[in-house]
Amino acid sequence: MVHLSVNVNKIATLRNSRGGNHPDLIYLSKLILDSGAHGITVHPREDERHIRKKDVFDLREFFVLYNRDKKNKIEYNMEGEPSPRFLDLVLEAKPDQATLVPVTPGEITSDHGFDLKKDSSELKTYIRRIQNAGIRVSIFMETDLENLKLVKDTGADRVEFYTGPYAHAFDQSPEEGKKAFESFRKAAEFLQAQKIGINAGHDLDHFNLPLFSSLPGLEEVSIGHRLMSYALEVGLEAAVKEYLKTLT
Score class of each variant (00 low, 15 high):
153 D>Q: 10
153 D>M: 07
154 T>R: 10
154 T>P: 05
155 G>N: 03
155 G>V: 03
155 G>A: 04
156 A>C: 09
156 A>E: 05
157 D>E: 07
158 R>F: 13
158 R>D: 13
158 R>Q: 06
159 V>S: 03
160 E>D: 07
160 E>W: 01
160 E>C: 08
161 F>Y: 11
162 Y>Q: 13
162 Y>S: 00
162 Y>I: 12
163 T>E: 05
163 T>Y: 08
164 G>N: 06
164 G>P: 00
164 G>R: 02
166 Y>H: 01
167 A>H: 08
167 A>N: 00
167 A>F: 05
167 A>C: 07
167 A>T: 04
168 H>Q: 03
168 H>Y: 05
169 A>V: 00
170 F>Y: 15
171 D>N: 06
172 Q>D: 04
173 S>M: 02
174 P>E: 07
175 E>D: 07
177 G>S: 01
177 G>D: 04
178 K>L: 09
178 K>F: 01
180 A>L: 11
180 A>V: 00
181 F>C: 01
182 E>T: 14
183 S>C: 06
184 F>A: 09
187 A>Q: 01
189 E>P: 02
190 F>V: 12
191 L>D: 04
193 A>T: 14
193 A>I: 12
194 Q>I: 10
194 Q>K: 15
194 Q>V: 04
195 K>Q: 08
195 K>N: 13
195 K>A: 08
198 I>D: 04
199 N>M: 12
200 A>G: 11
200 A>V: 14
200 A>I: 11
201 G>S: 12
201 G>H: 11
203 D>W: 03
203 D>I: 02
203 D>R: 05
204 L>M: 01
204 L>F: 01
204 L>A: 05
205 D>M: 04
205 D>N: 14
205 D>Y: 07
205 D>R: 08
207 F>I: 13
207 F>Q: 08
207 F>D: 09
208 N>K: 08
209 L>V: 03
210 P>W: 04
211 L>A: 06
211 L>K: 10
213 S>V: 11
213 S>A: 15
214 S>Q: 15
215 L>H: 02
215 L>W: 00
216 P>A: 05
216 P>F: 10
216 P>M: 14
218 L>G: 02
218 L>P: 07
218 L>F: 02
220 E>L: 03
220 E>C: 13
221 V>K: 06
221 V>L: 02
221 V>N: 06
221 V>A: 07
222 S>F: 00
223 I>W: 00
223 I>A: 04
224 G>Y: 02
